[in-house]
Amino acid sequence: MKITLKIWRQRDAGSKGAFKEYHLDDVSRDMSFLEMLDTLNIKLIKQGELPVEFDHDCREGICGQCGVMINGIAHGPLKNTTTCQLHMRSFKDGDTIYVEPFKAAAFPIVRDLKVNRSALDHIIAAGGYVSVDTGQAPEANSIPITFEQAESAFDAAACIGCGACVASCKNSSAALFTSAKISHLSQLPQGDKETSTRVVSMVNEMEEEGFGFCTNTEACQVECPEDISVLNIARMNYEYNKARLVKK
């Protein structure tokens, strides 16, 4: 396949960026999107140009490190798929593809398609855990958890932390990400004890990191590789209001 790429090139957060056009003549349908970028990079390096910097690691859809906007959609056209799991068979011969980084005030650009998403780590650090030290745990089967409860918590826990929800949101809100962790832990007896302190602390941190507010457009779930449900946001809001009321 012949593919035209328009890729966002930007030296660092302080510099101005712009789209640059590239042409690839021999793209295989079986290539992953990132393997297509690898091919471009080898070509660029041999021409004496700087390769396109992009983030990636596991290339099997679980580590959450990859993620770019492809034709304006986080992770590209396939639903519930990370960039690394997208294959060129999703495109046609002769297509022009726009590739941009995940853009958000809380995700400063490092270079080209690489952004700094450590703000997401800060949200987890603010309370996204069960406060149990190594060695304190009781016998595992002493905490029965029904099948349905465990599965429902898992649906929220499946978040890979890629930031596509933030990039897809017109307000750059991290509500889906934050609520997924709150929802995972509050649905389990081990995590429920700390729900009220956790939710207040994580929501506050989310604001401090410069993420916007959720206005319920639900674009985030649509682009989420793990199809994390927006109902988690409703649960977060419920828990947040409850915590505030109880506090007063």
Binding site: A137, I143, A150, F154, Q190
Partner: peptide, 22 residues
């Protein structure tokens, strides 16, 4: 065995039987 205890206490959602046991 202690590892399973620790992970469950952290909230790791291991597969469960319908009765709630691991």
């Amino acid at each position: 065995a202690s590892l399973i205890d620790q992970a469950v206490a952290q909230g790791v959602p291991f597969g469960r039987e319908y009765g709630g046991y691991l």
